[in-house]
Design a protein around this nucleic acid. Structure first.
Lengths: 328, 328
DNA sequence: ATAGTGTGTGTAACCGATTACATAAAATAG
DNA sequence: CTATTTTATGTAATCGGTTACACACACTAT
């Protein structure tokens, strides 16, 4: 691999001049530039990013932390992030945290040693203070961290949850349960609040209609079976996400209850899997790709010290009516 | 961020000694080591990987190239690779190639400039020569490159395809079609060959029973509709992968043909989505996680210049009988 | 004619590590 | 007791870039 010194020798100039040509910085005579470019081409020279990073303190690499890329929500997000990053010449390091704060912190520590330029956290059990100690640009994605100055991209979780619940009511549901996501998760709380906003005051409501589950199909299935044993008169389920919704569908179908005639189900997220099940899953779709792309663009701005016009983005969600709820 | 010089000053030794302590290389007096370790702790020093990489020519970073992380086969593979890499202290850069050789080459060029230690290609339209020009350790995963010395991990595609086809015959299928994967893909060819091995000599066989489709559900659906219009007497479908199989299921169900009574379907890969559809998809499962993990371990060995005991791994596949084929 | 500005280029320090080489003290051998 | 080996440490070059600073020359302004 040729170095900048090889180029400078061949072109008969100093390394500084070559560097100037490379970075279009400072003055370079047109003819000199031609000579340098010729030498570069001749040697098939490409600058060494590592050496560059050492002075720059920039590596053109960012970290993307997800709980588990295997969870169908995250591939699309990752794809969006990677697409944007690639477009801007950045490279994306993927990390699975399993929601383990310890693992997450270690990972970010490692990335910092590698001079990562920034991090997108689509997974966090971390507190705001912990995030601040990273001293690296961070954007939090699809999570909420209790803090006033960590940039964030989410969707209108509470509002979406309200809409979803209201939709079930409009469908004629008389008793709607909520299979919420894990208790430690803020967005699961938000969605739960949205549900409560709508049903709390209704005479049939009862806190026992809210059950927590992990974002895992089998567990959601189990939770649904138990829920329906206790409350057989439930005729609508708002699930905290699509995975849970699919688990619920399974349980409901196992019990011989027909969807959507006897039981309406609505999910949240809008992952592709919802189109694979039968009946197809009605869901409150988040603009997943858009969220990832937006977070990526924000991070790049932060890295390049451009001002952010908005610190928090709450994107709109959209109801997608499919087979697990009745028409109009 | 403190540097090695800060540490050396505080400990009252030279940077060389600190480096020796850090790397456990050369001689260091026990007491000196204690002083150094104390200084390191006191300053909360962590070595700068970029600087290290500049001399080492090792970054502890590898590239993982997939066609599209959004395709449900790849997250599990990526997870396996990342798990192993993390375990060994490596970091994984994710790249989506969209099967575009141009994009792929550019990406790898970029990664080389960043002193990547190795690459796992789970996506390649590249030729062996092109791969060789990378001059970086490469392991090819779930792909076949025409060459004798590029390490590779796949499953027994041809054999698995034979088994899958035979299984449909045993189920009593009288006319089995094959919805194969894209024509430029070697593994799709392999699976097609396996199918042919079994059915070629049978009186009902006809080349028109083989139809190519992309690994895309909608397209597979379309292809299936057309196929069944031409050959309404097909009663078994061997799909080139699970996505295609699911697309086929959709088409078949749309036509009001019952699965598995009137039509048996078997997929290939064993992705989680197969358990989500109804009926659940019978499939020839590849040990996806194991393949990813194995490829990762191979790459690490190559990077660390340990000898590989085997250059090519062809892992066993396993028939998973579920609802899209009849019992026994 | 002199000062001041803009253009063009080179020298060498620097980023933060690793390591070849030199040197010296301590331990062991003969 | 000297010769050799082992242990212990430091100095400075190196990896491959960037960039502050110095210097020289060509213009323009006074």
């Amino acid at each position: 691999m040729p170095t900048i010194r090889d180029v400078s020798k061949l072109a008969g100039v100093s390394v500084a001049t070559v560097s100037r040509v490379l970075n279009r910085s400072g003055y370079v005579h047109e003819e000199t530039e031609r000579k340098v470019l010729k030498a570069i081409k001749e040697l098939n020279y490409t600058p060494n990013f590592v050496a560059r990073s050492l002075t720059n303190k920039k590596t053109g690499t960012i970290g993307l932390m997800v709980p588990d890329i295997t969870n169908p929500f995250f591939p699309e997000l990752a794809r969006a992030v990677e697409d944007v990053m690639q477009q801007y010449g950045y490279t994306t390091i993927l990390g699975n945290s399993d929601e383990n704060p310890q693992k997450e912190k270690q990972y970010i520590q490692l990335l910092k040693q590698k001079y990562i330029d920034g991090v997108i956290l689509a997974s966090t059990a971390l507190t705001a203070e912990e995030v601040h100690t990273f001293k690296v640009p961070v954007v939090v994605l699809d999570r909420v961290v209790l803090s006033d100055n960590i940039p964030m991209v989410t969707s209108k979780n509470r509002e979406g949850a309200r809409e979803a619940t209201r939709f079930l009511l409009e469908q004629g549901c008389r008793k709607i349960a909520h299979l919420r996501g894990p208790v430690q998760l803020r967005i699961a709380d938000e969605r739960c609040h949205g549900y409560l906003d709508v049903v709390e005051k209704l005479e049939w409501f009862h806190p026992g209609l809210i059950v927590a589950s992990n974002y895992d199909m089998r567990q959601a299935m189990q939770a649904t079976l138990e829920l329906l044993k206790k409350h057989p008169d439930i005729d609508g389920i708002f699930a905290g996400n699509d995975i849970i919704a699919i688990g619920a569908m399974r349980a409901v179908q196992m019990l011989g209850i027909s969807i959507p005639e006897e039981m309406a189900i609505i999910g949240y997220d809008g992952i592709t899997m919802g189109e694979i099940v039968y009946p197809e899953l009605t869901t409150m779709a988040q603009p997943i790709y858009e969220m990832g792309a937006l977070a990526a663009r924000m991070l790049i701005k932060m890295i390049e010290k451009q001002p952010l016009d908005t610190l928090y983005y709450e994107l709109d969600v959209q109801l997608i009516e499919r087979g697990t709820t009745r028409k109009g």
